[in-house]
């Protein structure tokens, strides 16, 4: 399961970012922020290939010694980043994909809320709950 899940706005500021364990929060912020480099690289590369039927899932952005960072970008250029512990080897690509799909669906629900102002930080409880379900459970 993920150790950090982030939703990043089109303008590259975080709409939502949550990580476990919390004491490493800053490190994850740096990691996710840096991963935007690769996200942008992949988007522009994919954009050249085929603009219309682009794959939203960007795959492994980059591995570090401790973590694997995966990316996903919606058609409106909102980015999702999931950070997984490298020692967690049970996660397959397909599971990461389905996590992103769940995240995307839930985020779409947030956007559909007429009281949600696009561009504001996500504060939805439902979204929070869904994210919690995908995070590593720390006792």
């Amino acid at each position: 399961m993920a150790v950090c899940i982030a939703v990043i706005a089109k303008e590259n500021y975080p709409l939502y970012i949550r990580s476990v364990p919390t004491q490493n929060e800053l490190k994850f912020h740096y990691t996710v922020h840096t991963s935007l480099d690769v996200v942008e690289e992949k988007i522009s590369a994919a954009g050249k290939a085929m603009a219309d039927q682009r794959e939203l899932y960007l795959g492994l952005l980059y591995p570090t010694e401790d973590y694997k960072v995966y990316g996903y970008v919606t058609n409106s250029k909102v980015k999702f980043v999931i950070v997984v512990d490298s020692s967690n080897t049970s996660l397959r690509d397909n599971e990461i994909r389905s996590m992103f799909r769940k995240l995307h669906n839930s985020f779409t629900d947030v956007m559909c809320n007429p009281f949600y102002n696009p561009g504001d930080p996500v504060q939805s409880k439902v979204f929070e709950g869904m994210v919690s379900g995908m995070m590593v459970q720390v006792s």
Partner: peptide, 13 residues
């Protein structure tokens, strides 16, 4: 860079 992209925690740090 952090300020312009609105990453508050890195900004603080």
């Amino acid at each position: 860079s952090y300020v312009s992209e609105g990453w508050s925690l890195p900004v603080t740090h």
